[in-house]
Design a protein around this nucleic acid. Structure first.
Length: 507
DNA sequence: CTTATGTGTCATCGC
DNA sequence: ACGCGATGACACATA
């Protein structure tokens, strides 16, 4: 995004007037004014002009419509730009306006007391990282009573897409009628985390990415939007930056993990983050998340607000595409991004969010399940950028592989289960066979014993010619083929066996 | 805090 | 050569 007017192709622009308090009493007054507004109006339903009027009366933040035409070529402001402007409150500057001005109850006592007219085209020169701005925003800014969150926190943003009869009050891409009511009304009931969740990818999708697919968007914007650079698509190119990016992530986290770390860590972070960003710098969801779930702890105070740095460059260096788009590995970020996302996007997969960001005109399911021919036809039929095609192919590859992995695991599990079944069956069979063998052995032993008894019984009854008992060690009983039983001396049996063995060997 | 389990993803291989 | 499925390995989430 480049510095420019608030709206594009519309016939009016807006500037912001800020009445800042000079002392705590005045601050209280502003808060009360907001409170009155909240009490007496359904700000969500206010038109922009209504809102202007009310806020003008309240004396805090006023969005002033400037009745002059735009040439239609000026670049649209993103919501992020707006937040940058709103959050870029230089320490000793008369120009900056802070989130504290926008959101009642967060105004730093240290801020100057002048009333400023801040045009967006002026304010954009501050170029303050939204991440920092939000990071440093006093947490009590948005904090409402616990449990007092509105039941439909997303509602204001739904208006971003809603058609409006009056084009003057609905800015394309930057629908302030959707945004500002949140500021005026819903903020009181939202924690800072809620705010950040609401100011999530959806918003940037709706506002910044709406025209990307058709207006030559910068891939880096999208990749920065999600910071999901593990893909081999254009979204994630250079893996060599992973290590540094992790460091950056940790650094970012360290900023949030301790109140004292805010000032020391902020500058390098902000510079690194901002350099290479073209116009609209999209805060990394992870970073926003780092702060958002910590902002409730209350360490983000006004002191930290003084450490917003200015005069950051907004030039995109060609090499920055890789470095920024591949800044973080996804795995470590999923939870943080999940925390950062709103309820709707939290349920979306990474690819779904990516597809949404790139406005892929097909569903994930379609992309994955479509037959190859249909898939190729689909790609050729539609005009798609290289980035979109790359993402679609990645989505398809990942989707296919996911299914394949599921099938593989299922198959592996089935194999394991089958093997376990087989093992069970074989063990059962083994037990049966063992029992059978024991039974057979028992039977054999019984038979053997019976034979032994019978043998001795027969010999005990046998008498030789002299009437003496026959010695069983010298004779054996032999059954002939005709059923007769002969008493044969052992010597003959053994010699006969030897002869038979010799015959057998000769054969 | 550790461990087991489930899941997504990537790299690689073979068809 | 290319696409695709299968699968091991890894990282992460979760119970």
């Amino acid at each position: 995004m480049q510095s420019g007017k608030l709206s594009k192709g519309r016939n009016c622009i807006y500037s912001i007037e800020v009445a800042q308090p000079t002392h705590p009493g005045e601050r209280q007054k502003i808060q009360n004014s907001h409170h009155d507004i909240e009490e007496t109006h359904d700000i969500e339903r206010l038109t922009l002009s209504d809102f202007e009027t009310e806020l003008q009366q309240s004396g805090s933040v006023v969005l002033v419509k400037e009745e002059r035409s735009l040439n239609g070529t000026e670049t649209a402001f993103s919501l992020e730009d707006l937040f940058q402007m709103l959050s870029s409150q230089p320490e000793n500057s008369l120009e900056g306006i802070s989130l504290g001005n926008i959101f009642p109850g967060s105004i730093s006592d240290g801020m100057n007391s002048s009333t400023h007219n801040v045009n967006f085209s002026q304010a954009v020169s501050h170029d303050v990282n939204l991440h920092e701005a939000m990071l440093l925003c006093p947490d009590n800014t948005f904090r409402g009573e616990p449990g007092a969150r509105t039941s439909q926190p997303q509602e204001p943003f739904l208006q971003l897409n809603s058609p409006t009869a009056n084009p003057e009050q609905t800015l394309p891409g930057t629908n302030l009628t959707g945004f500002l009511p949140l500021v005026g009304n819903q903020m009181r009931n939202l924690t800072s985390q809620d705010l950040l969740c609401d100011l999530d990818i959806n918003i940037f999708d709706e506002i910044n990415l709406m025209s990307l697919a058709t207006e030559g968007f910068d891939p880096m914007e999208v990749s920065q939007l999600f910071e999901e650079p593990d893909s081999d698509s254009g979204l994630s190119l250079n893996s060599s930056h992973n290590s540094t990016s992790v460091t950056k992530s940790n650094s970012s986290r360290s900023v949030c993990e301790g109140a004292t770390g805010c000032s020391s860590d902020l500058e390098p972070l902000s510079h690194r983050d901002l350099e290479g960003a073209v116009g609209g710098y999209y805060p990394e969801p992870s970073k926003l998340c780092h702060m958002d779930h910590r902002s409730d702890t209350g360490f983000l105070g006004d002191v930290a607000f003084q450490h917003i740095y200015h005069n950051h460059t907004y030039h995109l260096q060609p090499s920055a595409l890789d470095s920024t788009s591949r800044s973080f590995s996804w795995h470590g970020k999923s939870q943080k991004i999940s925390e950062y996302l709103n309820d709707t996007d939290r349920n979306l997969s990474r690819d779904e969010r990516r597809a949404k960001a790139l406005h892929i005109p097909f569903s994930i399911d379609e992309i994955v399940r479509m037959p190859v021919d249909s898939f190729n036809n689909m790609l050729s039929r539609h005009y798609l950028t290289d980035l979109q095609v790359s993402l679609i192919r990645d989505i398809r590859r990942r989707g296919k592989n996911k299914v394949a992995a599921q099938n593989c695991r299922k198959r592996k599990l089935d194999i394991i289960l089958n093997l376990e079944d087989d093992l069970c069956n074989l063990q059962a069979k083994k037990e049966i066979l063992k029992r059978e063998r024991a039974q057979y052995n028992k039977a054999i032993n019984t038979m053997r014993q019976k034979l032994h008894d019978l043998y001795h019984d027969i010999f005990s009854r046998l008498r030789d010619d002299d009437g003496r008992p026959v010695n069983p060690n010298q004779y054996v009983l032999q059954c002939s083929q005709d059923g007769s039983v002969l008493i044969v001396p052992k010597e003959l049996v053994s010699s006969g066996h030897k002869k038979e063995n010799r015959k057998g060997k000769r054969k």
